[in-house]
Design a binder for these strands. Sequence first.
DNA 1: ATGGCATAATTGTTATGA
Length: 254
Amino acid sequence: MILASWNVNSIRARQERLAAWLDKVRPDVACLQELKVVDEAFPHASLEALGYHAATFGQKTYNGVAVLSRTKITRTIRGLGDDDPQARFLAVDVDKLHVLCAYVPNGQEVGSDKWAYKLAWMERLRAFLDAHYSPEDRLVLCGDFNVARDDLDVARPDDWVGSVLCHDDARQRFQAILDWGLVDVFRRQHPGGGLYSWWDYRMLGFPRNHGLRIDYVLATESVAKKCVAAKIDRDERKGEKPSDHAPVVVEFVA
DNA sequence: ATGGCATAATTGTTATGA
């Protein structure tokens, strides 16, 4: 089974690239973030034509998450179960797997209101896991976490010391999510680091490979132990009109 | 200290991202 996570940075701007990529990779499940579109304008028809069911939790202009699946989606939970108006979380069941798709807030600047919201949001995500699932479940939590876990996940760590992507307080919230009972399956496959999922559009970030790994596939151990391959599809950061994020693609055996 | 690039709201400029 192939599972992917990709922050597309507008599904409408990325529609052609997304379709070509789905056709090439044929993931069984794909978690998408930053749709920047309301549910009514989500491109269901073109994705159906490619063989995908879709669950969406969209929003005008900002945020928005979706899960695509080649098999039927049997349950959908939109949001973390509170009155937060930002569309950043979607959980579905597909086959015998819980699939959770998250777009963690960026936080803008340490000390800002958005920063406080980011930390609180990550705590709410951990609480949601506690309330709804067991670490014994077959579960994956994928998405853009807007946190580089370790300096191994940062090309130029000195540039990012204390920033919203690398701050200890954010890393602690991330670790609390892992400590619930999740494995960073990409890290397990590539313990040496030095592989990135996001590069700034500016300052020749991608040609210089000044990247960070902030997109993740996390899995409970029963799923993680079936992982046979994990990669970041750097080719998707090349060419015309790329997202600033590349997809993370993970393969599991039966 | 700032912008640098991209997107979506709109058509000149702002909010946001990471």
